[in-house]
């Protein structure tokens, strides 16, 4: 079957086969009308002409994509050259999300591994502890991070108190602050899939490696890591993808200079400089980027299963 695990497990039984359409209809209607159709309308809007002060004029135009990729000078009649402003914003977002993913992996992998090797009855407790913060309002968590990282904030007080630094270190409104915020926002997403993979891992493989005189770190790198790779990839995707389009962390922790895709899009719909087709085009480009990442990772995962 083409679907397999990707389509939510197999249909177990057909007890309610006759009522199937009726049972699924509400979800089709609500998600079709309020998510799927809106995404298609967004695609259409990205090819329309902008109305000043928000909204669109129903006239086909490539202006939004043109503005994104090409620079035609101040009056629009110069020979087109590549416009780097928006490409750089996307590039910066990819970089920031990537850095946050690496931080999350460095902390998340050992944590997931440690939890998965606890006695079975205490594992659930650890997993619960790691997941709680995810269910706390993302806005509040980001505000907390801002509060903590301020120049006169508790972190600097602490660092100066124990004498690591003499004067406050400036973290807020830097790229690093945004990376920390993203790392903090999505860290539980890294831990959970890796935990699930390590829990299924057969430790007699490690024992076999040790019997053949592999050191512990060789065992980790050559035996364990390849076996849990699908979990690691899933974790990286779950941190990277939401980080890429995030709005709160760059807005609250990065200040005005550290623009990311989310802020660029938001500005098109909120500010007075509103340009809806351009915002729709930027959203489409972000969505395509995310779909490409998801497709590549799905292919990678399938390849892993084939071996």
């Amino acid at each position: 079957m083409a679907g397999g695990a990707a389509s939510g497990g197999k249909a177990q039984t057909d007890t309610y086969k006759e009522a199937r359409t009726l049972l699924l209809l509400p979800s089709w209607l609500v998600l079709g009308f309020f998510v799927l159709i809106p995404v298609f309308m967004m695609l259409i809007y990205s090819f329309l002409t902008k109305e000043f002060r928000g909204g669109v004029i129903w006239e086909f135009s490539l202006a939004a994509y043109d503005q994104f990729f090409f620079d035609r000078g101040l009056f629009g009649d110069d020979a087109p050259s590549i416009e780097w402003t928006y490409i750089n914003i996307f590039w910066r977002s990819i970089w920031q999300a990537g850095a946050a993913t690496i931080f999350a992996l460095l902390i998340g992998f050992p944590t997931a591994y440690f939890i998965a090797t606890r006695p079975p009855n205490s594992r659930q407790m650890w997993v619960f502890l790691v997941t709680i913060p995810y269910w706390v309002n993302l806005l509040i968590r980001t505000v907390s991070m801002k509060f903590l990282l301020r120049d006169q904030g508790p972190l600097n007080d602490f660092l100066m108190g124990i004498g690591i630094v003499d004067s406050p270190i400036h973290i807020i409104n830097t790229d690093f602050a945004v990376q920390l915020g993203l790392f903090y926002s999505y860290l539980p997403f890294m831990v959970l899939p890796i935990y699930a993979a390590v829990e299924r891992y057969n430790f007699s493989l490690s024992e076999a490696a040790a019997d053949l005189y592999a050191s512990k770190w060789q065992t980790l790198r050559r035996v364990l890591l390849p076996a849990v790779k699908p979990g690691v990839i899933a974790g990286c995707i779950l941190v990277f993808v939401p980080s890429l389009g995030s709005f709160l962390a760059p807005d609250l922790l990065g200040g005005a200079k550290n623009f990311m895709i989310g802020s660029l899009i938001e500005e098109q719909f909120k500010g007075n400089a509103g340009n809806w087709p351009f915002g729709a085009a930027a959203s489409m480009i972000l969505l395509s980027l995310v779909l490409i990442v998801l497709m590549l990772s799905a292919r990678q995962q399938n390849k892993g299963e084939g071996v």
Partner: peptide, 13 residues
């Protein structure tokens, strides 16, 4: 779909 994209799409709709 990234949340901000859903937000834009819903607003447009």
């Amino acid at each position: 779909v990234p949340e901000i994209v859903t937000a834009v799409a819903t607003l447009i709709f």
